[in-house]
Design a protein around this nucleic acid. Sequence first.
DNA 1: GCGCCTTCTTAACTTGGATCAACACGCTCA
DNA 2: TGAGCGTGTTGATCCAAGTTAAGAAGGCGC
Lengths: 242, 242
Amino acid sequence: MPANLASALITKLAVSNHLDGEDIRAIQNLRIRERHLGSREIIVADGDRPGECCLIVEGFASRSKTTAAGERQVLSLHIPGDIPDLQSLHLGIMDHDLISLSPCTLGFISHAELTEVTARHPHLAAALWRETLIDGSIFREWIVNVGRRAALQRMAHLLIEVHERLQAVGRTRGGEFSLPITQIDLGDCLGLSVVHTNRTLQALRGERLVETDRSGFNLLDEERLKELAGFDPTYLHLTPSG
Amino acid sequence: MPANLASALITKLAVSNHLDGEDIRAIQNLRIRERHLGSREIIVADGDRPGECCLIVEGFASRSKTTAAGERQVLSLHIPGDIPDLQSLHLGIMDHDLISLSPCTLGFISHAELTEVTARHPHLAAALWRETLIDGSIFREWIVNVGRRAALQRMAHLLIEVHERLQAVGRTRGGEFSLPITQIDLGDCLGLSVVHTNRTLQALRGERLVETDRSGFNLLDEERLKELAGFDPTYLHLTPSG
DNA sequence: GCGCCTTCTTAACTTGGATCAACACGCTCA
DNA sequence: TGAGCGTGTTGATCCAAGTTAAGAAGGCGC
C-alpha cells in the first residue's frame, strides 16, 4: 500500500483527534484502492448505494443537491484528507451528489473493511464519528451563512473557512490557497446568482481583501476579513479538545 | 428506571435502525436522569462543555446560533426521541444553543455511560452514529431550503419535514401535529423576517394548504404541499435500509 | 379587572439581489 | 485559424423580501 494514501487520512484525523500508535497502524493497514479522476467527474450520485467510501488524497471535491425546480445548491467543499461520503457507511442511499472540482487522487475503502476496522478499534471509530460530527457542525454554519449573512459577509466567511481548514492540513502559503472553483459554483455554495457572485467578489477585490484567479484565492488581510464576516472558528473543532 | 424515558429513544432509533434484543436491553439499562423544563429554557448554551447528553422524552426543542451581528438562525427542530446534543459526546465544546420550545421532559445520560455502552455494543454505537448522520442529512436539506427555495416553498418544505418526522414516531393525527412555535422562531428557521413569515403563512392558509394555531399545524393537503415544495423524503432516511 | 408584554397582523416604503441581455475573454478542438 | 463554448464582466430593470411603524389581540401577573 503506498504510504501517501493513508497518510492523507492520518494527517487530517490528527488535526481533530488524539491518534495513538495502534490507530495509526490500523489506518496504514487499510486496503485502499487508488483511483484518479479528472475535473468535474461524478464520484457518487444522488440515489446511488455505494459499497465503499472515498478518501480524497489530492485535489478538491464538492457535494451538491439539485431541487425539484432545478436549482443547484452546493452543500460542502472537500479537501485532501476528507472522506466526503463517509455517511454511506451507515446510510444506505445517497441523498446528494459528490463531484470532483479538480483532477483528484482518491482512495476507495470498502464498507466491509471500514466496518471491521471500526469494530476492532473503537477509538478509531470514535475519531471517524467525530469527523462526521464536525461535518455537521460545518453544515450548521452554512445554514447560518446562507440564512442570515449578507452577500459580502457570506463570501468572506466561506473563504476564511476554507483557508482555516486548508491551513490545518498544511496546504496554505500565508493567505494563499488553491481552490479551483468557478464563480458559478461559488454562487451555488452561497445561494447567490452568478451575476451577484461576480459583483460581490469584485467588492472584496476592490477593498483589497482578496485576490483571485482561476486556480485559487489569496486572502490579503485575514484580520479584516474575519472582522467583516464575524468569523468564530469554534465550529471547525480544529483541536482534539475543542 | 421509568420505562418511558428509555422507550422514547427505542421508538426513535427503531425508525431508522434494526435494533436487536441486546441493543434494546442495553438502552433499557442506561442510567437516565429525568428532568423537567419549562418553555424557552436554555438546555445547553454555546460555549458550554457538557458532561452528559440530553434525550427529549416529551416536548420540543431547537438548536440555534446567533451571528456576531446579532442575527439569529434556528438550525434544527427536535422532537421526542431525539438526542439533540449527542455531538457533545465527541466534540468538547458546544458551538450553538439548545433551547426548549415547550415544557419538556428530558432524560440526561452521562458521557461516561454512553462511552461505555457504545464500546460494549458496537451495533448500538453504529445506530447512534447513524442518527448523527441523519442529523447531518437534515442540515444539508436546510441549506438547500434556505439557499435555493422561495419563501412559500421553503415554509411548505419545513412543515412537511416536521410532519414526516413526527409521523414516524407516531405523533401525528392525519395532517395535524403539535409544534408550539412562534412566527419569530419559524422565521428564524427559514431565514426570513417575521413580517414576511407572517405573509407567507397567510398565503399558505389562503390556499387552504395549512391551518395553524399557537400550538401546532394542520396540513390540509399533503399532496399539494409536497408538490409545491418539491419534497423528496429520501434525506430523512426513515427506514433502516435507506 | 387592569396594565403590560409578547405575538400577530397590516400597510407603506425601501432595497439587496435576481433576471435579462450583451459583450469580452480565453480554451479546445476541428 | 477560426468556430464554438464555458466563464467572466457590466449595465438596466424588476421584484421578493426586508424595514419601519403602528394597531389588534391575546396571555399573565398584580
